[in-house]
Amino acid sequence: MAEVNLRQVVKKYDDTLAVRGIDLSIADKEFVVLVGPSGCGKSTTLRMIAGLEEISDGDIAIGGLVVNDVPPKDRDIAMVFQNYALYPHMTVHENMSFGLRLKRVPKAEIDSRVENAARILDITELLQRKPKQLSGGQRQRVAMGRAIVRDPKVFLFDEPLSNLDAKLRVQMRTEIKKVHQKVRTTTVYVTHDQVEAMTLADRVVVMNGGLIEQVGTPNELYHHPKTRFVAGFIGSPAMNFIPCSLDKAADGLVVTIAGGIRFPVPAARTERYKQYAGRGNLRLGLRPEHITEEHRNTEPGQVPFEVTLEVIEPMGMETLVYFQSDGAEVCGRTNPAANAEAGKPMRLLADLNHMHLIDDETGVVY
Rank of each mutant, 00 (worst) to 15 (best):
V206G: 01
V204A: 11
R173C: 10
I176H: 08
V230I: 04
R173M: 07
G210R: 03
G210A: 11
M207E: 04
L221E: 02
K177M: 10
P225I: 10
V190S: 09
D193V: 00
G210S: 07
V179M: 13
V195H: 10
T185D: 13
A197F: 07
N208Y: 12
G216T: 08
R173A: 08
T187R: 00
K177R: 14
H223I: 07
A201H: 04
T191N: 12
V195T: 12
V204M: 12
E213C: 08
V206N: 01
R184E: 03
V215E: 01
R173Q: 14
V206T: 08
V179H: 05
V205Y: 02
T174W: 01
G209Y: 11
V170N: 11
R184N: 08
I212N: 00
Y189Q: 09
T199V: 12
K177Q: 13
G210V: 02
V183E: 08
T186P: 06
R228S: 13
T187K: 03
Q194S: 02
A197R: 11
V195R: 14
T217I: 09
D193G: 05
L211Y: 08
V206R: 00
R203E: 00
T217V: 09
V170R: 13
V205H: 04
K182P: 00
G216Y: 13
T187M: 11
V206E: 06
V205G: 06
P218H: 05
V205P: 04
R203H: 06
V230F: 08
V195Y: 14
H180G: 01
V190F: 10
L221R: 08
A197N: 11
Q194L: 05
M207Y: 05
L211Q: 10
L211C: 08
N219D: 12
D202K: 00
T187C: 04
V206F: 07
T186V: 05
V190Y: 11
V183N: 01
Q171L: 14
